[in-house]
Simulated assay, not measured.
Amino acid sequence: MTTAEPLRITHIGGPTTLIEVGGWRLLTDPTFDAPGRRYAFGWGTSSRKVTGPAIPAADLGPIDAVLLSHDHHGDNLDDTGRALLTGVDTVLTAVSGARRLGGDTQGLRAGQNTRLARSGRPTIEVTATPCRHGPPLSGPIVGDVIGFALRWAGQQHGALWITGDTVLTRRVRDVATRIPIGTVLLHLGGVRFPITGPLRYSMTARRAVQLCAALRPHTAIPVHYEGWQHFQEPRDVIERAFTAAPPSVRDSIHWLSPGETATVTA
């Protein structure tokens, strides 16, 4: 019987987390710039960063791979994050992002697989999962985004899934039918911009409850809800939605404030 590997997750801020398992150190969506700057997201949208990272990039230590949902928005990859990529052997992202970043960056389309393999460590199978970073037909405007499902030997509850920036769609919901999920990092925030009115560009708390009801994960960790002006649903809004959810959903939520680390059963 394969021994389960302890899974440690540290929330650094925004969408940025450090994932440690079996000797691997993986980083998601590196955002390490100081607060105060306004970033343009295209088509008249912009946002100001209001909170810096809980852990500076210089204090991270070695990173084996970066899982980058998309490269073209500053709240998922900023200038300090781009500099960090140059010292990482493996960077996985969407196909269009890999073309922009160049070098050895590996591009994946939703449904494609790759592996992280190194002697003395468990091999991690990485599957790119679908995202839609906005309303229907917004793809050409908002650009390509992917999530990541990670599987390795010994997982007791199922894969680790990083949803990436997405609203809830049928394809996103269908991940639960194709991949058993044990732990999910939920990119939330209910992003909106004044120029586009009520349109949402990331998942709301209400939709996250619906997704978790379909997934039935052992552990659900909200990220991507604080630190920026365009995040419209802070922690208290998310907490209310999950408090009102059925027990199987409510009990799965595990909060990590920026800077906190949790060891979860994968």
Rank of each mutant, 00 (worst) to 15 (best):
R250Y: 11
E233L: 08
P130F: 14
P194S: 03
T129F: 15
S257Y: 04
G52D: 01
R206C: 01
H11L: 09
E5C: 15
S96I: 02
V126D: 02
R206V: 13
D78K: 07
G61V: 01
I12E: 11
T204E: 03
E239Y: 03
M1Q: 13
E20A: 06
G139V: 14
T90I: 10
A205T: 14
C212L: 15
T3R: 15
A54M: 02
L7V: 04
H70A: 14
L116P: 05
I146S: 00
R216M: 09
R250A: 15
L256E: 14
P222F: 09
P6C: 00
T80G: 01
H187C: 14
T105E: 02
R121C: 08
S248N: 13
G23F: 12
W152T: 06
D79T: 04
S138I: 10
P30V: 01
H224P: 00
L77R: 03
R109L: 12
Y225T: 02
L150T: 05
E5V: 10
G36R: 07
V249F: 12
E239Q: 11
V167F: 13
I12R: 06
Y201D: 00
T263Y: 09
E239L: 07
P30R: 06
V264E: 09
Q112G: 10
G197A: 06
D29V: 00
W255V: 00
Q232K: 15
E233Y: 04
C212G: 08
R206Q: 12
L211V: 03
L185N: 10
Q155E: 13
T177I: 09
R8I: 01
V172F: 01
E20W: 08
P135T: 07
A117Q: 15
L185C: 09
E20K: 04
D78W: 01
G44M: 10
V184T: 11
P53R: 03
G103V: 09
I179S: 07
T204V: 08
I55W: 03
S248V: 12
D75I: 06
V264L: 15
G134S: 11
H133L: 03
H73F: 15
I179A: 01
P130C: 08
C212S: 13
Y39T: 06
R170P: 05
T2W: 15
I146F: 01
T129P: 13
G139I: 12
D165V: 09
R192G: 04
T204H: 09
